[in-house]
Structure formats: structure tokens, C-alpha cells
Design a binder for these strands. Structure first.
Lengths: 120, 120
DNA sequence: CCGACGCATTGACAGCCGTCTATGCATGGG
DNA sequence: CCCATGCATAGACGGCTGTCAATGCGTCGG
């Protein structure tokens, strides 16, 4: 099991834009891991649905029906997003609330963009 | 075969950030296709190597050795990036020169970011 | 205490993906 | 005219991935 990883893009080696200099193998592998978590229609929709939901958080039962996927599949995708450092999981009572990790998506965008985008 | 697709992110429906409103299935599928092309260590390194190369372009023979992959594999990855609208291919004589599509990566970054990043 | 509910985990299966070797196809030099 | 060179394509194969049905596990209400 990989276990929860901290998003390397938020670390000190954060702001080296892709187009500046050739990526070394390790950096490319880290960035690819994060992008792989994003590169799925269901997960992209989950991210946007969580972000747009009331209070910036949503539980699985809010997401299953509009997505048109079964509950285990939704749980699986949410786990992938949490492990990638893009979502947080907060279990309150019977429900598990998911929310965006602030700045995580912006960090990915900053690496892809040739601009030095301020995250704040 | 899918054939070369124009990058939908550069179209009129360009600047709807992921976190603003829930993505519909079609938009999510389009964005996922582009991200899937990016979500590979070899392709990320290829993009950065092409961008950082002299004149902003590089041929396959420039990329094969530093990547540590065989020539057919490199050609395959480059084709994926071209089909995704991230690279251009210009065959001159025996060589095939690849270059970044201006603004393509920035367009992807703009969709991911919560900022309204100016592309220019 | 027990049943219903919300969610995670497991196991299974089809399909896609990254890589290689082998081969084909132009182009240019001698 | 022929061979070397640079690149693309074809075919094969192991591994990963997205999905589902079935099941397990806490938590709350009655």
C-alpha cells in the first residue's frame, strides 16, 4: 500500500515550471502521480462537485447519485483523490465529508503554467 | 483511431475553472483526455526537454538517449502528446521536429487553477 | 439490543497502457 | 542504384485501472 502521501508540489521544489528546464526522473514521476489522480472524468467531476457543494464539502451520499456510479466506485475515486493530497476526509458520525485541500489544484496549475502564478 | 483533436480547452468553453461549478460529463471527459496525456513521467520529461531544447524544438534522436527509452517508445509518447494538442510535429528531411503548442499547457493550468490566469 | 443506514473493503473481470522487438517506409549520400 | 539513417507502425505481453456485486464495519434510532 502506498499510504497517504503529502503533495510534493507543495514542498520546497514547488515552483520549477515544466517548460523551464528538463525534469529529472523523480520529479516527473511525482508530478505524473498527481496528474494521474486528476486524469479521470469521474474524479474531475467529484472534485468540482465537492468544491461547488454547500460549505465546500460533501459526503459520499451527495455524490453517488449525480455521478451515476455505484457507492463503492465513488468511495474508490475519493480515496484516490485523498491519497493524492487533493481532498481531505473528515468523518463525522455516520457520514464522511470530503473537501478540497486549499491550494493543491493551484500548485499543480503553477507547475504546468509558464506564468509564475501567485497562490493566494 | 482518434485522429488529431483540437484542444477543447482553447475553445470558447475555455475558462470555466474546475472549482466554480460541477463539470458535466462531456467537459470532464475532454479535460480527462488531456490530463491523461500529461499523466506519464516519460511524457512530462519529453515536454520539458522539448521546451528547454535549443530553438524550442527537438527531434526524436535528441530525446531517445537522455530519456533511457527505445526510439519506438519515444515516438509513441510524442504521438500521444501531438494527438492531445500539446505538441506540434514538423518533418524536415529525415528528421521530425517537435515543439510545444503555445498556450496549451497554460490553458490546462487555467482550468485547474482557481485564479483567472491571463494567458499572454 | 437490534435493525437500518452510510461508508469502506474485498474479489473479480474487462479493457487500457507502457514497453519492447521486429519490421516497414521515406529520405539523402556515395 | 544501393545502402545507411531517422522515424513510424505493427504485434506482443505484463501490469495497471475502472467498474461492479458482495460483504464487513461503525454509528445512530427505536
Amino acid at each position: 500500500m502506498a499510504g497517504p502521501r503529502s503533495l510534493p508540489l507543495l514542498g520546497p521544489a514547488c515552483c520549477a515550471p515544466l517548460v523551464r528546464a528538463p525534469l529529472d526522473a523523480a520529479t516527473a514521476a511525482d508530478l505524473a502521480r498527481t496528474l494521474k489522480a486528476l486524469a479521470d472524468p469521474a474524479r474531475l467531476r467529484l472534485l468540482s462537485m465537492v468544491a461547488a457543494h454547500d460549505g465546500g464539502e460533501a459526503c459520499v451520499c451527495d455524490l453517488t447519485e449525480p455521478l451515476g456510479l455505484t457507492q463503492p466506485t465513488v468511495s474508490h475515486h475519493l480515496k484516490v483523490l485523498v491519497d493524492a493530497g487533493l481532498l481531505t476526509r473528515d468523518k463525522r458520525g455516520v457520514w464522511a465529508y470530503y473537501a478540497l485541500v486549499p491550494g493543491a489544484l493551484d500548485a499543480v496549475a503553477a507547475v504546468l503554467s509558464s506564468q509564475t502564478a501567485p497562490v493566494g
